[in-house]
Design a protein around this nucleic acid. Structure first.
Lengths: 140, 140
DNA sequence: GCTGATCGTCAGTAACGCTGACGATCAGAA
DNA sequence: TTCTGATCGTCAGCGTTACTGACGATCAGC
């Protein structure tokens, strides 16, 4: 007999809606800073590293290099990152945080951490750590 | 000091890419049956229940009722579901699985289960169960 | 019967991220 | 050194997903 299946038991549903909920929370937390969670991901990847080309940044973010163009256009318009030509390879642009970008990122880290804690508040800390570890293995 | 942050440690990244990977796997597994994971979710929600209106089905799926229209159009075109007017309330359509829909769903369950197992193969079964439980609490 | 709410539908829109193509540039081989 | 193939950033276009806002038809309560 075909039991009535609770969609909440289905991994696809759970992953999708967990992601939706999480991005909704973090977007809200970051909005006062003028960025969203997608922007934040880019800023974080740029911080504390060697200067990197657009392609390298895109690969770290797991997005296409063509998607990177629009993202950088927006971040540059907001004044948090800057593109400059790579002197060693003129096909490339080097992407850097601006000073304002550094400041924004500092504030964003705090806001993001709080949003993450809110999101994870429904489960014990040990389960949250376990979740992260399991997801990391599944994504690898 | 700002450490170089591994994007793979960030919950948003993990949730997004876990979901992407999972839907890619299940879509591939379901493709021979002519449906995708979105379709499968709808079929599953329809099976073994009272006949339901479009709105009720949409709510169970966690999507908007306007999104439901296009989804049902597609499923009806594929011959796996049927709409018929609700005799008790002519504003409503009752949505049902067709016989072909039942057969498709049976086959899809198997294909889906295998894809899910493939996805979860990277972690021990206990971690998989824990993942599901934690996500369910986070989504509630 | 009216009035306000509900349901399904549709047009329009927005976000996201892809493919395919292009010019500019680079690296290696002839 | 010049040619050839690959690489990088850019752009136009497309497909997916799912929304808002509006509409007609219908229902329920007064």
């Amino acid at each position: 007999m075909s039991t009535a299946p609770d969609p909440h038991d289905v991994l696809g549903y759970l992953l999708k809606h967990a992601h939706l909920r999480f991005t909704a929370l973090t977007d809200t937390a970051l909005r006062p800073l003028g960025i969203d969670s997608k922007d934040f991901g880019a800023l974080r990847v740029l911080a504390g590293r060697e200067p990197a080309s657009q392609l390298q940044v895109a690969q770290r973010l797991g997005i296409d290099r063509t998607t990177m163009v629009a993202l950088l256009d927006e971040l540059e318009r907001k004044g948090v990152v800057a593109r400059r030509p790579d002197p060693g390879d003129r096909r490339r642009n080097i992407v850097e945080l601006t000073e304002q970008g550094e400041r924004t990122l500092d504030a964003a880290r705090t806001a993001y951490r709080e949003a993450e804690e809110d999101f994870l508040a429904a489960v014990p800390p040990q389960a949250a750590a376990q979740l992260r570890a399991t997801l990391r293995e599944l994504v690898e």
